[in-house]
């Protein structure tokens, strides 16, 4: 693999990277009207879900997936959700990430209820507060690595405001790609990247918007053990060095053990630990 050298380099950088590496000058990310999710001092739980229920319809058959799940994560936490496939862990993550709405229950983020927000407000929330990474990376094949990383910023800003701070955005994306060890792959399309590289790019993309919360859906599920381990190490570093709150879904107990805390899902319910 051509990137072995750069990976260790990236790790080294990660250790030495000043905390400000991820902080853009605030002027670059101009404030825009949105729901204020400033974390209240009174509540330590960044994300908190109560009694989540969700069922899917298959033809006339109603398949219950989540049957009253309670979940919470404090700011700066790293929680792994584990369970057999089909236990509803991905559904839980989608509900937490407002990609889907629960049939019953409530989700609070920074002390505000988010599961019943209007679609547009949920879009803004996902764009600005959440970062997501997936098992199959989900990069856009038409865009280069750099453009993929910039995608959330492009979504957030219109043409004019994007162009006004174009260089700042690009600088930031480059720094992030350096951070994940992909600084030499800016113009490559996802097709030309290896699995591990794609996941690194996806992590950079998830971080560009400076999210409070990173939702990871089986981030190592499609990678070999070594590469998966590297990705996991990267996530842990981000959690530790930058205080990034991470919810990770996995079916692998070994990987789940790397997290601070583990939640087991069995048949749509949280199993007592």
């Amino acid at each position: 693999m051509s990137s072995t050298a750069t990976k260790s380099q990236a790790n080294a950088e990660l250790k030495t990277a000043p905390h400000s590496a991820l902080r853009t000058p605030q002027s670059a990310l101009a404030p825009r009207p949105h729901v204020d999710f400033a974390s209240p001092a009174t509540n330590t739980a960044l994300l908190c879900a109560k009694g989540l229920e969700k069922s899917y319809r298959k033809a006339k058959l109603v398949v219950p997936v989540l049957k009253g799940v309670d979940f919470q994560i404090r700011e700066g936490g790293f929680v792994a959700v584990v369970g057999q496939s089909g236990c509803g862990k991905s559904t839980l993550l989608h509900l937490l990430g407002t990609l889907d709405a629960p049939d019953a229950g409530e989700i609070h983020f920074s002390g505000r209820r988010i599961d019943n927000l209007a679609p547009r407000a949920r879009d803004v929330l996902r764009n600005e507060q959440f970062g997501m990474i997936f098992q199959f990376y989900h990069l856009l094949p038409e865009l280069s690595t750099l453009e993929n990383v910039l995608a959330p910023i492009m979504i957030r800003f219109g043409v004019l405001s994007y162009w006004r701070h174009k260089t700042a955005h690009i600088e930031r994306a480059k720094k992030l790609l350096d951070l994940v060890g992909l600084g030499h792959r800016l113009t490559h399309t996802p097709r030309e990247l290896s699995g591990g590289e794609m996941q690194r790019a996806a992590i950079a993309r998830a971080l560009i918007a400076q999210p409070k919360l990173l939702l990871a859906d089986e981030p190592t599920g499609n990678l070999d053990q070594k590469t998966g381990g590297e990705i996991l190490a990267l996530l842990k570093k981000l959690n530790r060095d930058q205080g990034l709150t991470i919810v990770m879904v996995t079916h692998d107990q070994a990987i789940a053990r790397q997290a601070d805390h583990t939640v087991r899902l069995v048949e749509g319910k949280v199993a007592p630990s």
Partner: peptide
């Protein structure tokens, strides 16, 4: 389809 899903997950509105 999948790209559309990705865009929406990244916060792109339906109108976009």
């Amino acid at each position: 389809t999948r790209d559309i899903g990705i865009l929406k997950a990244l916060g792109a509105p339906s109108r976009g």
